[in-house]
């Protein structure tokens, strides 16, 4: 089958991730949208690995996964720390540096 469909699907998923990132105000949801964008990029990498016949794309997807896991750990720890002092996960709440 035409492997370009995989790329189109990845583009759609990436756009959905951007939509969630731009429209939602909950820090957790914004984080999940970023995860969705990373996954879409991974799908592109794996698709190209299969299309070109080179495993480097899969290796890159693997490293994206590792970095995403580390990023999630630190990001969620930051969200927990903010939520502990502000009692909310809304990103609009953490604007106290401006005041």
């Amino acid at each position: 089958m035409n492997e370009n469909y995989y790329l189109v699907l990845a583009a759609i998923l990436f756009a959905i991730g951007v939509a969630g990132f731009l429209t939602r105000r909950n820090a957790l949801l914004i984080f999940m949208s970023i995860e969705l964008m990373l996954n879409a990029a991974n799908l592109t990498l794996v698709t190209f690995a299969d299309a070109v016949g080179d495993l480097t794309g899969q290796i890159m997807a693997f490293f994206v996964m590792v970095v995403a896991a580390a990023e999630v750990v630190v990001g969620l720890a930051i969200i927990i720390t903010i939520a502990r002092s502000l009692h909310t996960a809304s990103i609009d709440a953490s604007s106290w540096l401006r005041r």
Binding site: N4, A11, F14, A49, D50, A51, G53, D54
Partner: peptide, 26 residues
């Protein structure tokens, strides 16, 4: 929403012919 629709269209049309020819397979 406008930006996202534009981005989806741009990305989609860009990659629609991203892979030319049969895939090599792994």
């Amino acid at each position: 929403i406008v930006v996202v629709v534009a981005l989806a269209g741009l990305l989609g049309f860009t990659v629609l012919h991203g892979i030319v020819g049969p895939s090599a397979g792994l």
